[in-house]
Nucleic acid binder design. Structure first.
Lengths: 356, 356
DNA sequence: TTGTATGCGTTATCAT
DNA sequence: ATGATAACGCATACAA
């Protein structure tokens, strides 16, 4: 019976290879770094053989220490539970692959201490840059990063007081697109549902854009509902209240107009997690036919959205991640331009929820 | 206007701190490693001040190089798109935090080359161990790992020819539990739907356990349906075929028994992604009332399951991740026991789908 | 074309 | 109690 243990019998080093090949470490190093033109064919062959025999693999840590850069970049994700984050990650990974970086993925799991801890950790590992999907509670946490610290690119949201590149959704455009869609489909009431703003810029922007967009349509009434997803009790309570108001609105409407065939109020979820919370609640309360009472539209297009048939604004998540790495790469390369914002457009996916 | 650049003005090193504090590097090192008892109070104070002034943070790479261990472990995830993986990850992260490791998360995105590449990368970064949720195409890919290589723990599935610890769901128990549930609820036909087995042990085990469990209930007929999720065309085709057979089964049943109030055939999805594919298809084909035609049960309990009202077997994902790190930690510490399997039980969550 | 020597930032060994 | 000094594994300036 075999016993897997820490049986790692010390990996071969460059010196070992040099000895095995009967040469100096320099030649090995040259071989590793592709300076082939400067090596005689026979030496090169001996080196190759030695590497093969010893199963040698250069130690990246040592390399990084020596050359002063380790090709590591940190990717700090606020919440991997959110499909949005995973999609962005895919773009990040692809770009890292293309540009020769290795991404260190850190997951803050919505905990501020985790965010701080990982940021700290990443700097002690001397990553060359970080991509941060920040909790954004305060710029204090992010001090080691950005201006004067290690290069950073923010994703999805900016942080007050932090001067860095940032790439994310064009919130203004996306929100306007969605709002106009709802108005055109004839909804008379639109309720914008969003998590507590805290310092998360994208939430603020979307909410502001929503009301700005509605100003053009005085016949439609809009309001904001804040939903705290973290606290189950508070969530349930808020949702109950919301439901009651919905009842009232529907009753009033039917009294005036008679029972309509389609809902006249729409819920506009600021992001996927909010939409899921709403859908779960409505489904539980009113059964699978809840969409006959109220329509649901969401920014973010998680996989279940198609199943549920809700209309969404899909974000260019992959591109967001990819661009973020490109920006970071430029900074690492010494680019000195002032902080840039890269806003990418969302696309509307219309589903049964808002079809009349 | 501020310009975030690679303005990182070279971080302070231990020598800088020594000079600033007017002492030798050794004392700084001692301070950093908590050998406080051996430092005079005044020297200690000077060191603290110097560190503060220079904002010094020890370079983990250099430390790792010197001591021969860097507290890094790799976590190779097959598919982050699968909520199962993210949940396992949470457990891994928690355990790493508790045990003082930093997890390097790598995402193979279901690509075998990625898996190989990341494994290679992890070894060159000299991680002390790896947790692998393998694609498992062949043990060849995983050669650098496990027996003789760096310590490894497999998650969810084992790989033929690879001798390592492994932790995952008790597939036998979970599948039996689910099967018995369906039988007790009176279903007469149960179709087990699973992705192509390839080398993924958990899929095989679940399928085998399903048929084994059904042997005890001769009145119920069971069969296996293989669903290739990767190829959209093939998927659509298979699903159409499945749907036609479903029609036939329902028609035959109604002819014998008259139109029933509840479905008499149940689909048993081997995991969450399969369940989602099935639900999407059925929903698209038959509308939100599809559950009146056929019941759906799934191993894995993704968030949308409650929304859709399908019965599931929830895996102890967090524990799986946590235990994996504990195992790895023991191996890293030199534990030599022979390869262990840790099988954790799943729990049945009954929802509308299978209630009569 | 090839090898020697030095140093990256840290810890460990040995003095003092 | 404190401090020189030699490694760790590698890359590079320089010498041969």
């Amino acid at each position: 019976m075999s016993t897997p243990g820490s049986g790692a019998p010390r990996r071969a080093t460059i010196s070992d290879v040099a000895r095995e090949a009967g040469t100096g470490k320099t030649s090995i190093s040259r071989y590793l770094n592709g300076e082939l033109s400067v090596l005689s064919p026979q030496l090169r062959a001996r080196i190759e053989a030695a590497i093969e025999r010893l199963d040698y693999q250069p130690n990246q840590m040592a390399r990084g220490l020596k050359r002063g850069r380790n090709r590591l970049i940190g990717m700090l994700v606020a919440d991997l539970t959110n499909p949005y984050s995973v999609e962005v990650l895919q773009g990040v990974e692809a770009a890292c692959h293309a540009l020769g970086y290795m991404p260190l993925i850190c997951h803050a799991a919505n905990e501020v201490d985790m965010e701080r801890r990982f940021l700290q950790l990443l700097t002690t590992y001397r990553v060359e840059g970080v991509i941060v999907n920040a909790l954004g509670v305060s710029e204090e946490t992010l001090r080691p990063v950005g201006d004067g610290g290690i290069p950073a690119v923010l994703v999805d949201r900016s942080v007050d007081g932090l001067v860095t590149d940032m790439v994310g959704l064009d919130n203004e455009g996306a929100t306007t697109l969605a709002t106009r869609h709802l108005v055109e489909r004839g909804f008379e009431h639109v309720w914008f549902v969003v998590q507590p703003f805290e310092h998360i810029s994208s939430r603020r922007q979307r909410e502001a854009a929503f009301h700005r967009a509605l100003e053009q349509y005085p016949q439609v009434s809009g309001r904001t509902v804040v939903l705290e997803l973290g606290d189950a009790d508070e969530l349930a309570q808020t949702l109950s209240g919301l439901d009651a108001e919905l009842d009232a609105a529907i009753a009033a409407h039917e009294q005036r107009e008679g029972a309509g065939r389609a809902p006249h109020v729409a819920l506009f979820a600021a992001n996927g997690p909010v939409a899921l919370a709403l859908a779960r609640h409505l489904n539980q309360r009113h059964g699978p036919d809840w969409q006959k009472r109220v329509a649901l539209l969401s920014i973010d297009d998680p996989e279940w959205a198609e199943l549920a048939g809700i209309t969404t604004i899909r974000q260019p998540t992959y591109d967001i991640g990819y661009r973020a790495v490109e920006f970071l790469h430029q900074r690492i390369d010494g680019e000195q331009a002032s902080a840039r914002d890269c806003l990418l457009p969302g696309v509307l996916i219309e589903r049964a929820s808002t079809m009349r």
